[in-house]
Simulated assay, not measured.
Amino acid sequence: MGMTPTLYQQFGTEMLEAFTRDGIDPSQVDIRLKGTGAGFFSGLHKTLPLQESLTDRPEAARRMNEWFGDSRERPVRRPYDAMWRLGLESEPSDFDLDINSTAIVRAAREHWKTTHPDRYPGDFMGGHGYLDKQALAGTLPALAAWSKKWEEELGRPISLGVFESSGPFDATVLGRALSSHFKENDWVIHRPDRPMAWQTPKSRVPEPPTAGTADRPRPSAAAARSRSTTSTRKPNQPKRDPAKDPGSKQQPPQHRRPDGPETGRGRSR
């Protein structure tokens, strides 16, 4: 959401280049887009306000009424950018990126152990399973610069969460409905076995024609029919001369209709 295909390709390509400049090989990184940027609707815990709850926000109530009118068929969850467009939030929806890489976590530990040995005496991941923001910015300055540039380019915040390569913890085992662990329907921007969506064998982008075939003329329909209706000469069989053997003259196929005024009627171009 919020990007053209061209921008999306540039967005992902420059992100991988930033990892490389920071000394992280893209083959060691799994990147997934989460939240409304990928799924359009927010999580179950964020509901769209009801009209009657906006009595103290007249402008938001007006926009809500302009949006839905008298219809009571409204989404329960918040659509992408909805709160911003209603004037209830000061920023549009963000891009929530999960970056899963044990290599980055190890690099961050080494960086802060060397430069700030007393900064993280306890849990380096902050107790929530992902890398502290200051640790991330200090370890990956090129990625931090990339994030700032693209926030300005897109006009919306970018949230970076760095996890171990195994990904976020599966909270469903604790009975929670919300969990950001790896799922089959995740929007994968990049992963080691699928390096960028448009550069993988699974891509829907058609391959360019191979050398030598692009300019080769396609046979006409008449030529194709002719080939399909003429008999095939056996190997080593001498070619007959129609002048010497009138019986060898090819006859038009019996199913072919002669050209007439009806030919081509109803044929779409």
Rank of each mutant, 00 (worst) to 15 (best):
S179D: 04
A171F: 04
S166G: 05
N236G: 00
G175H: 08
E184N: 15
D193A: 13
S166R: 04
P206E: 07
R218M: 02
R176E: 09
R176G: 03
H190A: 00
H181M: 13
P206I: 06
K202T: 06
N185P: 07
N236F: 04
R216K: 15
P192T: 06
P242T: 01
P141E: 12
S165L: 06
I189R: 10
K239A: 12
R204N: 12
P238E: 14
A223I: 13
P157W: 00
T230N: 15
T213Y: 12
D241W: 00
T213Q: 08
L136G: 02
H181P: 05
P168H: 14
R216M: 12
V173L: 09
F182I: 12
P157M: 05
E152I: 13
P141I: 10
G175I: 00
F169K: 15
G155Q: 02
I189L: 15
E151F: 13
W146A: 00
K183M: 09
L160M: 11
P201Q: 05
R191L: 00
K239T: 12
W187L: 10
K149C: 03
V173Y: 11
T229E: 02
Q199A: 09
A222M: 05
A222F: 10
E207C: 01
A214K: 01
S179N: 04
Q199D: 04
E151P: 04
S179R: 03
E164N: 06
G161F: 11
R194A: 09
R156I: 02
R194C: 11
K239R: 15
P238Q: 14
R204A: 10
T229N: 02
F169A: 08
D186I: 10
S220P: 15
A197C: 08
E153L: 06
L174S: 08
S228I: 09
E151Y: 12
F169G: 06
R218N: 00
P192R: 04
K149L: 04
S226E: 14
T210F: 13
E151D: 06
T139A: 00
P206L: 08
W150D: 02
G167E: 11
A171W: 12
S231H: 07
T200A: 11
E153F: 13
A142F: 07
W187Y: 11
P141D: 09
T230R: 15
E151I: 06
P206S: 07
G155L: 02
